[in-house]
Design a protein around this nucleic acid. Sequence first.
RNA 1: GCCCGAGUGGUGUAGCCCGGCCCAUCAUCCAAGACUGUCACUCUUGUGACUCGGGUUCAAAUCCCGACUCGGGCGCCA
Length: 433
Amino acid sequence: MLKRTCYSNNLKDGEEVVLAGWVHERRDLGGIKFILLRDREGIAQITAPKKKVSEEIFKLMDSLGREWVILVKGNTKSSPQAPGGIEVIPSEIEVISMAEPSLPLDPSEKVDADIDTRLDNRFMDVRKPRVTAIFKIRSEILRAAREYLLNQDFVEIQTPKISASGTEGGTELFPLSYFEREAFLAQSPQLYKQTMMATGMDRVFEMAHYFRAEESNTRRHLSESDAVDIEMSFIENEEDVMYILENLVSHILKCVNENKKKELALLGVEVNTPSTPFRRVNYDEAISLLQESGFNVHHGEDLGTESEKALGNIVKEKYGDDLYFLTKYPLSTKPFYTNFDGEKARAFDLDYKGVEISSGGQRIHDVEVLKTRIKEKGLPLSSFEAYLKPFRFGMPPHGGFGLGIDRLVMQMLNLENIREGVLFPHDRRRLEP
RNA sequence: GCCCGAGUGGUGUAGCCCGGCCCAUCAUCCAAGACUGUCACUCUUGUGACUCGGGUUCAAAUCCCGACUCGGGCGCCA
């Protein structure tokens, strides 16, 4: 078998190369035949003029089908007619794998496919250069996040994804059978990363996988989702946490802009690199802004989807910001572990173009206050014994956030559906592939 | 959980309101043929579809009922 010497984006004039990839398109003009060979980095033209290639190659060019996997050995030649200015004259073609005709979708994107058809045949959908680009950008987001957090002295950890109970409340959990007991898939690493604050590790993060059994059926929700979760000790208040979050997101956007120019261009997306600090919009202000715009919202209630989106537009118009913090929510809208200042939660959401991509805040570290809050929330204290134990033996003030990767990708790239930015999304209806 | 909408060749669609002109449109793909610079090559010919079940009717892709599958909005949630 021939061995690949380079990708399609690395062709230089007058070299002998071996390309490996898929037959993207064929054009047969009789005395000259073209094949577009697609690999991870792009598309290269294989050109076979009858008089310049062997009879065997010329015939073989005819028999190749779309999406067959082939290896092509040949000489590069610059040519004004070739796409990209350079083409390969084949001297050897090896068929590695054939593809059945009647493809389940069209990777050359001449004909669209529904999101459902695409996801059912994701292996082929991802062959589209634009789809590949989304996942290269997603990889860069995670690389940049890791880079920033490690530079800020965070320690990367992993926590269990199966737990005895889902004490955080709110979200519905997936039950599963754990030997002779019932267990649940983790809805977030929240309680574990708080426990880590009692170990003296000071600053931790996890590239976490969440499971949520919500009955949601929207283009923003999934049953499985990924997030960057952090927790940090010895903070003065939630502003210390927000500082990390805004600089993290800013670093991510900057890296994507600098390192994924080709992919962004392919997707036709421009990413604005925000300056820090991000705008703070407190809850009272948010309500006022919405009321001024004629929305029927009242103090004390959480924002619905419609008002959240509207607020995104208002902030964009008024201040020009895509990213902004929503702060000082009423405590009643937040989970039991949220610290507070009177009736105001020491918590925040980070919204990106009108969609929440992160939420976090300062946590309660005083065990007595925590017990009181659990009781106030009407939760059974007995089931929190294990969670509370680390708080009894020296727990520093701390806080953190979870940053949803899928939503970040969606908002950054203006995807209509969160599923487009997830390789194999699982939701209320979809469990395969 | 509540509500709205949609299922037509491999893929994406037209037709549905207002039943007959539909042995169903167009594009792409596929097959056969012609073509030496294509770049969504072009041209000729051909194959391939009304989600399922019931009902109304002389007549159903089209109207009605049910099932199944899917999409979306809200709620919840992140």
